[in-house]
């Protein structure tokens, strides 16, 4: 019990939470802008294809096209406000809810976009936290009005980062548990994974999409899949260990990232949030990397350094 309390009552600098907000918000904004066509394509789907899930379960018919467009515009606009930390008290919950809505609606047409889940959960947690107390336009305005910015680490900046990390490792652990629950010990002989990779590549080829040549080539080599099946479970079931100490977190994040690279190479399935590394930001003191980067830039470009980076 004490250990649990200590885990959650963890102080972090405001800059760490704020930089995580900027990273997650910037990623989400770019991802949403890049996915606009996909998000709007639901307008053209047959109403019979609608299989509402989660937040959209109450829908009995597709949304009118104007509402789909309005939802996408809202999520992109509030995403930018969230990233910049402007009117955060209002823009952050609005962004989190509109992101949840838009991603759920996208998954309500017979295909669940697993790639959206972790990002959406992270944004929801950040929206509930004081992630714009520094390094934001709100903070800059407060500074101009004479308010002091927080300088000491505090538990109110730590809990959201902890929660984000817990959510991250739980998503992996659940995937591992699902494999054992659905496949049992047969997972370990690797044939199931081989069949999955073969099927995924087959359907993409037959549906007229290009696939990476590695997957089809590897399918012919039975022996590799026993090791790959075991490695997959090590990454997924080992995920909670990342919460124990920073060095384990670093090692696990590298393994998890490698896992996603393998999935990309073998099945052409991209998890952009994980592949760009932002999904793991909450596990690390990201503000130190920023400070280090600034120091390096200052050392190399002494004149430009004075203007670089957010001051508020």
């Amino acid at each position: 019990m004490k250990r649990t309390a200590r885990f959650w009552d963890w102080s972090a600098p405001a800059e760490r939470l704020a930089l995580t907000r900027v990273l997650v918000g910037a990623f989400a904004s770019i991802y949403l802008l890049a996915s606009t066509r996909d998000l709007l394509s639901a307008i053209d789907f047959s109403p019979r294809q609608l299989v509402p899930v989660g937040l959209t379960s109450w829908l009995s018919a597709p949304l009118p096209p104007w509402l789909v467009v309005a939802s996408v515009v809202l999520v992109v606009a509030t995403g930018l406000l969230f990233t910049l930390g402007l009117a955060f008290t209002y823009s952050a919950p609005l962004f989190a809810l509109s992101l949840l809505w838009v991603t759920t609606y996208r998954s309500s047409w017979g295909m669940i976009f697993h790639t959206d889940n972790l990002l959406t959960l992270h944004v929801l947690l950040l929206a509930l936290s004081p992630a714009a107390d520094v390094w934001s336009l709100d903070a800059r305005r407060r500074l101009q009005q004479g308010s002091a910015l927080p300088h000491e680490p505090d538990a109110r900046y730590g809990w959201a980062l902890r929660a984000m990390s817990v959510v991250t490792v739980v998503t992996y652990a659940l995937a591992g548990v699902a494999k054992l629950k659905l496949a049992g010990s047969t997972w370990f002989d690797g044939e199931l994974l081989r069949a999955q990779i073969a099927y995924d590549n087959l359907r993409k080829i037959e549906l007229g999409t290009r696939v990476s040549p590695l997957g089809p080539w590897l399918v012919r080599h039975h022996g590799v899949f026993r090791a790959l099946a075991l490695a997959t479970l090590v990454v997924e079931l080992g995920a909670p260990l990342a919460l124990v100490r920073p060095r384990i977190a670093a090692a696990w994040a590298v393994l998890a990232w490698g896992f996603h690279v393998s999935v990309l190479l073998m099945m052409s399935i991209a998890f952009p949030y994980q592949l760009c590394g932002v999904a793991y930001a909450s596990l690390f003191p990201v503000e130190r990397a920023w400070a280090w980067g600034r120091a390096m830039a200052r050392a190399r470009l002494p004149r430009a350094a004075g203007r670089a980076g957010p001051d508020a």
């Binding site: 066509r37 996909d38 394509s41 053209d44 047409w109 017979g110 295909m111 549906l207 007229g208």
Partner: peptide, 16 residues
Amino acid sequence: PPEMVANEQPMQAMRT
């Protein structure tokens, strides 16, 4: 290609 059926997502085209 899937965009002829639904959008760029092959799985969405498959479901359609």
